[in-house]
Simulated assay, not measured.
Amino acid sequence: METEHNIRLTSTEIAALWTTYQNDTLAKCVLSYFLSKVEDKEIKGVVELALSISETHIGQLTELFQSENFPIPLGFTGEDVNVNARRLFSDSFFLYYIKNMSKVGLTTYGMTYSMASRADTRTFFGDALRETMTLDKKVTQVLQNKGLYIRPPSIPTPDHIDFVKNQSFLFGGFFGFGEKRPLLSMEIGQLFANIQTNSLGKALLMGFAQVVRSQEIRDYLLTGKEISNNHIKSFSETCLDEDIPVPMTWDPDVMDSTEPPFSDKLILFHVSLLVTAGTANYAVSMAASPRKDVAANYVKLTAEIAAYANHGAKLMIENGWLEEPPQSPDRRKLVKA
């Protein structure tokens, strides 16, 4: 990757590059384990593509960091994965996992590309976005080929346009006032997506809880599993109240292994990554939900996962696993010095 040495990296670029390195080294560990277990040839091709993308990013970022005299983050290494551990998840779960992570990547890379300034970083994030689009296309096609793709609910196509007549459109029975209007198409889409991501997270937490070594972290994972389950129930009830179908869960895709394929450090960091993505999803969903009772529910549930994320951060600090992100100089200390 060519670097324009006369132009300094911005704080936004430093943060995005550092975070991408952390996430791709984690992905390399997870996907290497998946690759050692996958049996279906078509699914194996998806795992290989995802792994290749992460390995390419790690090489490009290492080169960029070195050219900038930027300390290469530790991230995650071969010490954080045991590819010889027994199978923990099914082949179909590998597909759903990659589909969900590609969705996160599309959102993240789109945002970081738009915020990047320097030509080389814009090229990197632009390429990463295109690569992730290719991965998403491939994993979606394989899911469809195997009859595993879960489509969001359908509603009748409108036959005319209309305008909102009064403010009851917003309230939806909030605080007991007014009748609930039917869910909007965008509200249905967001509820459905959040049920899916929580279902995937619940299955991942269940698997992680079976293999984690620390009892304290196991208790934390089980708490997260219960939170995910409660959120699934909450979103599902909103849909079922209006006869909107809800997606299935992936609990059966978790095997009975108790042999750790990943370090406790990787598992805890991965959970924090999921919580961060979930928080972003809820923020978007809240903004896309004019009905006040639906939006208020997202606010309540966001506060719950924020507290959970804080607990996870404390555990990482206590174990000496929280790698410190780049930060601005402490000017007050420098002045005193």
Rank of each mutant, 00 (worst) to 15 (best):
S263C: 12
I305M: 06
T12P: 00
G224Y: 00
I72E: 12
P153L: 05
Y21N: 12
M101K: 03
L95N: 02
T157F: 05
K165G: 09
S285E: 09
P329M: 05
I43A: 02
V211I: 13
F70A: 14
S236N: 03
G173F: 02
F208S: 05
T77F: 10
N166C: 11
I58P: 00
E131Q: 15
P247F: 03
I161P: 04
L266N: 04
Q22A: 09
L88T: 04
L31V: 00
L106H: 08
P156T: 13
A313G: 11
E187D: 03
K300R: 15
M133Y: 07
F208L: 07
L26S: 14
L31W: 01
A287R: 03
E259M: 08
I217E: 05
G172M: 02
M115S: 08
A313W: 05
A277C: 12
S228V: 03
E48A: 10
D120N: 12
F175T: 14
E216L: 07
H57S: 12
S154Y: 03
A119H: 14
A116N: 08
N319A: 12
F163Q: 09
K333T: 08
F94Y: 06
L268D: 02
V83A: 15
F192I: 00
K233S: 13
A119R: 10
V47H: 00
V271T: 11
F174M: 08
M286S: 06
M115N: 11
T140D: 09
P73I: 07
